[in-house]
Simulated assay, not measured.
Amino acid sequence: MKKRKIPMRKDLLTNSMQPKKELVRVVIDKEKNISVDPTGKQPGRGAYVSLDPSKIKFAQEKGLLDKSLGTKVPESFYEELFSYVDHQKARKELFGDK
Rank of each mutant, 00 (worst) to 15 (best):
D66N: 15
D37W: 13
P7M: 06
T39V: 12
K10Q: 11
L64M: 12
R4N: 14
V27D: 06
Q60V: 00
D11K: 02
G46A: 02
T71H: 10
P43V: 13
G46T: 04
A90D: 01
L69I: 01
K5W: 06
A59D: 00
L94P: 06
S68F: 00
R25Y: 03
L81F: 08
K3E: 11
E93A: 14
Q42R: 15
P19S: 02
E22D: 15
P38A: 03
E79V: 05
R45T: 11
V24Q: 03
S76H: 07
K55I: 06
M8W: 10
V36F: 03
D66F: 00
G40C: 03
A90F: 07
I34G: 03
K20V: 12
V85A: 06
S76A: 14
G46P: 01
K57R: 10
K72F: 01
K92N: 08
M17S: 15
D37I: 04
L51C: 10
D97G: 00
R9N: 03
T71F: 06
R25K: 11
G63S: 07
A90G: 02
M17C: 12
K20S: 12
G46L: 02
T71V: 07
V49E: 06
K98I: 14
S54G: 05
T14C: 12
R4E: 15
E93S: 13
T39R: 15
F77R: 05
G96D: 02
V27K: 09
E79L: 09
S68E: 13
F77V: 01
L51K: 14
L81S: 03
L94W: 11
E31H: 12
A59F: 05
E22Y: 09
V26Y: 06
R45S: 11
E79Y: 07
V36A: 06
Q88G: 02
R91Q: 15
R91D: 14
S83K: 15
T14Y: 09
R45D: 12
K57A: 04
Q60R: 13
I56Q: 02
I34C: 01
V85R: 04
E75H: 12
